[in-house]
Design a protein around this nucleic acid. Structure first.
Length: 560
RNA sequence: GCCCUCGUAGCUCAGGGGAUAGAGCGCCGGCCUCCGGAGCCGGGUGCGCAGGUUCGAGUCCUGCCGAGGGCGCCA
């Protein structure tokens, strides 16, 4: 990247400047000025070190500039008021970015493999029913993060963890039992705290169809666990296919019961005891999580002998690290932020580097329909499923919208708005840019305009401000993707995609691609090809498709 | 009471130390003999409040106010 090249120049200038830095060399920060008069890149280096070297910033800037090695990327440099050094880079650097896109295609901006492995655990909804709107943001963020990790050189494993035992699952089991008994013609009621959705009855009927009525006569405990497990076997594939449709594929599904059956939960508790951080009290086994910033100690084994979810979490931490990940990421809703301290504390107590665990906490989504909140309770049976959401607004619009906002911010998702305002929907604006370029390329083929090798193209013909802006946007994407990855901020990608599309649309309006000027046509065609590729790359990171053409929907025609 | 996140334009949100704070929507006015008008151009108002750190704060720290979420031997 150009920033790296400029940073090298500055480092070299600093080294040969004779300035006494007295300690660590400063981090070289290059920023893109908002004002174009300030050049393409700027550094505050002189301001940073002025205090240390005991000279006024402007003087330091002059010394640094005087010592800059000659370079074929720098067009000009100037010193500005408080002490900034502003660089203008040569246009052929922008051309290099475009050639890079042409050469690398989908891998443009991609980092080389680092050999580091990261596990991203997300969604992790319990198999008590279909995925709902509530899981949508988790799925979108988790998957986008996984894609960002992959793009920036990590080896990624996507994992889904679910609890298939425990109190919540028992309540689900009881509900299935009730529906099953009803299906065989017996009196039964779904418990008040059970799952009332009609899908439970569907599952029960399906079990009856497959296994017959004999399960009704099992002893109650066995009946519940048997029917619960039968139900889970039906729910999980459904969840999997919903995720598949949403563009999310997991590498591994891990169940709590597997951990329990392998004795790993007991082992985890044992290991915590060995550290002296687990103790007995009130008939239960506790973890001293207050040692790690938690506001109270947490129970691992209840006085009734059953382990808590937290105990399973501890076993799962061991499981994760035993598989050799360098980094593990949990994608959790804001309602789980309180669990962070104890899980990280447990990891630390177990001897793992607590900074290797990362918790990406996202805030809640308010789902609305025409401005009215959509009620969501799986237990009460009032919810909208993720499948229904995709039916209504489409997968692309759903994912893009869910990824438009910072995970830190609560967001609204008005189903009617995302569906009906398709004319103004950013996802279509971006996709339209891609489709529009595809259309130009088709038109070029129709007119028998052959796209020659980019090596033969005279990219210096791209001198219109709209062309240069577009080139800069293409060149910037690499840094933007890295920032999005580093900060766990996939929403930056949606903004980058919109910015790129906007610059393309302006270029399209002001600069006819197919003209009588053959050289200019070649250059502009390559600009189109590059833009199309980069838009597609960004959309891919978001899990959104990049269509070659777009149908006009009824909504749009009505609005026209 | 404690913990987490947020407070930026009429609305929805970007901007995690730099120079004159941006985008979309909405509103007003322009632009199609020509590559897709789902487009483009122009028009304007704003960092919750008070301190602090810094050469420089929307950004970092403290307090206050406001919104959302969380604080079980629930899951």
């Amino acid at each position: 990247m150009i920033e790296d090249a400029l940073a090298d120049l500055l480092r070299s200038a600093l080294a040969s400047s004779g300035l006494d830095l007295d300690g660590e060399p400063p981090e070289i920060v290059l920023t893109k000025p908002k004002q174009k008069e300030h050049g393409d890149f700027a550094t505050n280096l002189a301001l940073q070190v002025a205090g240390r070297v005991g000279k006024p910033p402007l003087e330091v800037a002059e010394i640094i500039v005087a010592n800059l090695p000659s370079s074929d990327v720098v067009e000009s440099k100037e010193i500005a008021r408080p002490g900034f050094i502003n660089f203008r880079v040569r246009d052929d650097w922008l051309h290099r970015a475009l050639r890079d896109v042409a050469a690398r295609g989908a891998a443009y901006g991609r980092s080389a493999p680092s050999g580091r492995r990261v596990q991203v655990e997300f969604v992790s909804a319990n198999p008590t029913g279909p995925l709902t709107l509530g899981h949508a943001r988790n799925a979108a963020i988790g998957d986008a993060l996984a894609r960002l990790f992959e793009f920036t050189g990590w080896e990624v494993l996507r994992e889904y963890y679910f609890n298939d035992a425990g109190g919540q699952m028992d309540r689900f089991g009881d509900s299935v039992v009730a529906r099953y008994l009803q299906a065989v013609g017996r009196e039964a009621e779904v418990p008040d705290d059970g799952y009332h959705g009609s899908y439970v009855a569907d599952i029960a009927r399906d079990i009856l169809h497959a296994k017959g009525p004999s399960l009704a006569d099992l002893p109650p405990d066995e009946r519940m666990t048997r029917l619960r497990d039968e139900a889970v076997q039906r729910v999980l594939p459904q969840i999997r296919s919903t995720l598949d449709r949403f563009g999310v594929r997991f590498d591994v599904y891990t169940s709590e019961r597997t951990l329990a059956e392998r004795g790993e939960i007991e082992l985890a508790v044992q290991r915590l005891r060995q550290t002296g951080l687990a103790y007995d009290a009130d008939g239960a086994v506790w973890f001293r999580s207050t040692e790690f910033g938690d506001d109270k100690d947490r129970v691992l084994i209840r006085s009734n002998g059953r382990h808590t979810y937290f105990a399973a979490d501890c076993a799962y931490v061991i499981d994760k690290f035993s598989r050799g990940f360098d980094h593990v990421v949990y994608v959790w809703g804001a309602d789980h932020h309180g669990d962070v301290a104890r899980v990280r504390g447990a990891a630390q107590a177990l001897g793992y580097d607590p900074s290797s665990l990362e918790f990406v906490i996202y805030q809640w989504v308010a789902f609305l329909r025409d401005g009215e909140p959509v009620p969501m309770s799986k237990r009460a049976g009032t919810f909208v499923t993720l499948d229904e959401l995709m039916d209504e607004v489409g997968t692309d619009a759903a994912r893009f919208h869910l990824l438009m906002f910072s995970p830190d911010a609560t967001m609204n998702f008005d189903i009617e708005a995302v569906r009906q305002q398709s004319m103004d929907n950013p996802v279509y604006y971006v996709q339209y840019g891609h489709a529009r370029i595809a259309s130009i390329l088709r038109k070029a083929a129709e007119r028998r305009v052959e796209l020659r090798s980019i090596d033969e193209a005279d990219l210096s013909r791209l001198s219109h401000e709209a062309e240069l802006d577009l080139l800069r946007a293409i060149a910037d994407v690499t840094a933007e993707i890295r920032t999005a990855a580093e900060r766990r901020a996939p929403h930056r990608l949606t903004h980058a995609a919109q910015g790129l599309a906007a610059r393309f649309h302006r270029f399209y309006t002001e600069c006819p691609v197919l003209s009588d000027d053959a050289e200019l046509t070649q250059a502009r065609l390559w600009l189109c090809v590059g833009t199309k590729q980069v838009i597609a790359n960004l959309l891919d990171l978001l899990g959104v498709s990049a269509p070659e053409s777009m149908e006009r929907t009824e909504d749009v025609e009505r609005a026209q």
